[in-house]
Design a binder for these strands. Structure first.
Lengths: 203, 203
DNA sequence: ATGATATTTGAGCGATCACTCAATAGGTAA
DNA sequence: TTACCTATTGAGTGATCGCTCAAATATCAT
């Protein structure tokens, strides 16, 4: 009789993957070396390959974790707020506020991946595109909720609004990465948020 | 008596730099190897280093060329059109239209650089930020022209409008890089262009 | 304890990295 | 032509790349 997993790995796969997300997010795929990963995950090369198979596979796992985390964050907007439209606007403003985290991690990792990847890393590029599409769907669902709540017109093209919203978010996070005047960043976020709120129809 | 440049280099420095722009734009700094550059510039490593000093210096030269080209393109909008505001709107729509060039070269190279670069390549990152700031100024000048022409309110905050415009352009070009439905891209560009045109004040 | 099995280690693999320099080729001036 | 100067070459530098695997170590059942 065979038995599954009687010997648990010593490393903390979850923590290691989190460390990989942080490192890859900050440095990007090509600029991150195995040496960097060994230090960040505190694992020797053999262990890394036993646990994650390859650098590319590890990146894909990290990207998946990043995506799931972001999707959950966006999904939370739908439940925690009575006003989906207000939640969308607030979400934008949050990215315009100064944050403590590393500045290199302000831009969306999916976008960074999309721009960093070449034809040779087509698997990574395809996955990033897929995740971005799923983010678009998530945002569309939020606009649909706003529509169902009567906040925006029943005739509104929610998919179109979602694409515009996602574009705004993309640009805003890149601006945050650019690190100019924080006040100007907040103003930009506010401009975008106001555009969202302007969709609210009078009852 | 000394004499400058009696022996002209055989290679075409201008053409080589153009090739470097194309290659770096497409693949990014870290993913581009000297081997790639040798093939693209059709120069041996020794010649590359004699002409451009180092890979980093070559990248900076390529980035400068890219920036000057884009700045000139934006500057041309100011002269060739009677309506600066209309030119800005059309410029957005142009990036939403399907183009023949390589899809990896749709996103702005300055933005790709900003996101690709790490702390170790701080010189490149600083230069990219500088060029982006100068692009902001260029766009601000266009809104100032629109204001001078009476197209937009004299009370409008042109710097703020410029930052929003630049954010839209950034996101639009990344969307073009993402390569979804061309029709949806055109719609996004149109949404952004309409926002610009909506600034037009009635006389 | 002991043996069996799973996990971790890290030296080291071939390949490729950015880069150098002595040698060669090619043009100019006398 | 000859002497001189510069541009070009490309094999080769040490370092680092992603990655492997035999050996050492840790954890189980008995």
């Amino acid at each position: 009789m065979t038995r599954a997993r009687s010997y648990a790995p010593a490393y903390d796969r979850d923590a290691a993957l989190d460390a990989a997300v942080t490192l890859f997010w900050r440095k990007g795929y090509h600029a991150t070396s195995l040496k960097d990963l060994e230090a960040a995950l505190r694992m020797k090369p053999g262990s890394i390959y036993a646990a994650f198979k390859s650098k590319e596979a590890l990146y894909l796992s990290a990207l998946e974790r990043y995506f799931e985390r972001n999707r959950a964050g966006l999904g939370a907007l739908r439940t925690q707020s009575g006003s989906p439209l207000g939640a969308l606007a607030d979400f934008l403003r949050a990215f315009g506020a100064p944050q403590a985290d590393a500045p290199a991690c302000r831009a969306c990792m999916l976008i960074k991946t999309l721009l960093d990847v070449t034809e040779e890393d087509s698997a990574i590029g395809a996955r990033a595109r897929d995740y971005l599409n799923r983010m678009t769907e998530e945002i569309t669902a939020l606009f649909a909720a706003a529509q169902a709540a009567g906040e925006i017109s029943a005739q509104a093209d929610i998919a179109r609004l979602a694409r515009r919203y996602q574009a705004d978010m993309t640009a805003l996070r890149i601006e945050a990465h650019r690190r100019g005047d924080p006040a100007q960043l907040a103003m930009l976020a506010d401009d975008m948020a106001r555009d969202v709120e302007a969709l609210r129809q009078v009852n």
